[in-house]
Simulated assay, not measured.
Amino acid sequence: MKTIKTSLLAAAVVSAFAMPAMASDINVKISGRAHLSLDHLDNGVDSGLNVSSNSSRLRFAASTEVAEGLTAVMQLEQNIRFDEGNGSFATRDSFLGLRGDFGLVRVGFFDTPLKVVRGRTDMFGDRVGDARNITNVPTGAAGANFDNRFRNGVHYRSPAMNGFTFDLQYTPHNNTGSTVENERESYSTSLTYNANGLYAAAAYESYENAAGDNPNALRLGVSYDVSKEFKVAALYQAARNLENGNRNVWGVGASYKIEDYTLRGQFYQAGKNDLADSGANMIAVGVDRNFGRALTMYAVYGLTSNDDAAAFTIASGGRDTRLTPIAGENSAGFSLGMIYNF
Rank of each mutant, 00 (worst) to 15 (best):
V252C: 11
F124K: 11
F124Y: 02
E205P: 14
R151D: 15
N86P: 01
L218W: 12
G317S: 07
V107G: 06
N136P: 09
Y204R: 08
K257P: 03
A144S: 07
T304D: 00
R120S: 01
Y204I: 05
I4R: 09
A141C: 13
D130P: 02
D93Y: 01
N290F: 00
T262Q: 14
K5V: 12
D288H: 00
N241Q: 02
T71E: 15
L303M: 15
Y268I: 06
F150P: 06
R120N: 03
D225A: 00
E229N: 04
R127Q: 14
V252H: 13
F166G: 09
V13N: 13
T91W: 03
N174L: 04
R99N: 05
N43T: 08
D130G: 02
A10P: 12
T192L: 03
E259L: 12
M1Y: 15
V73L: 07
A11F: 09
D83E: 05
D42W: 07
D213S: 04
V73F: 01
V117C: 14
S316C: 09
H40G: 03
R132V: 06
G333P: 14
M19K: 11
S316W: 08
Y193W: 12
D126R: 00
L49M: 00
F109S: 13
N194V: 04
K29E: 06
L323D: 01
T176S: 06
A90E: 04
A280G: 11
D308M: 01
N79Y: 14
F110V: 09
T135G: 10
Y340E: 06
N306I: 05
A10D: 10
V300A: 14
M123I: 08
I258W: 07
L58A: 07
G279Y: 05
F291Y: 07
F150L: 12
I80G: 05
V14I: 12
A270S: 08
Y207Q: 00
F291D: 04
A276C: 07
D277C: 10
R219M: 14
R264D: 01
M74T: 00
Y204S: 08
V66W: 10
M1F: 07
G163V: 03
I30Y: 11
A21L: 10
R99H: 04
A62H: 07
D147I: 10
D130Y: 04
N162V: 01
S190C: 11
A280F: 13
T313M: 05
V73H: 02
I283H: 08
S305T: 10
V116R: 13
A284P: 03
V117P: 06
Y268S: 13
V154Q: 10
V66G: 12
D308R: 07
A11M: 09
E77T: 03
L275H: 11
S7I: 13
R149T: 04
A72M: 07
N133K: 08
K5H: 12
A284D: 04
L263I: 15
N244D: 12
T176V: 04
L70C: 08
R293D: 07
L336G: 11
A90G: 08
